[in-house]
């Protein structure tokens, strides 16, 4: 849930999604779901000459599993808050594991 919540805070920011097939798509993050599927608006393809078949596409839905990276605007990320949320999630996961094994 941590990254689902995290991406929801980035809605309407400009991001670049790099796919596992090396294509990079830049656009406005419009929505995200629990699988980290992503919807982008107003897209442009980085290295357009290499991938001309996407030049007329205006928006995309990207399946989460094909994503390698998402490049984010650093000023939109509150890193101390993110680290605290990570620690909370880690301790929740640990207590869940303890429950199921005792």
């Amino acid at each position: 849930m941590l990254f689902f919540s995290f991406f929801k805070t980035l809605v309407n920011h400009e991001v670049t999604v790099e796919l596992k097939n090396d294509i990079s798509v830049r656009g406005t993050l419009k929505s995200v779901d629990q699988y980290l599927n992503i919807k982008l608006d107003d897209i442009s393809v980085v290295e357009e000459m290499k991938y001309p078949h996407l030049s007329s596409v205006k928006n995309v839905f990207i399946r989460g599993s094909v994503v390698r990276y998402v490049h984010l605007p650093a000023n939109a990320v509150d890193t101390p808050l993110l680290e605290d949320a990570t620690r909370r999630e880690a301790s929740q996961a640990a207590s869940k594991a303890k429950q199921s094994s005792s």
Binding site: L2, F3, F6, L36, V77, E83, T86, A93
Partner: peptide, 29 residues
Amino acid sequence: LNEVVFVKLRGDRELKGRLHAYDSHCNLV
């Protein structure tokens, strides 16, 4: 967390950067 880590990825890629988030799938920021 909040330290510099080295990450080895599939496809002969490596990253070096400051770790701000992770989860049990090894998703990272």
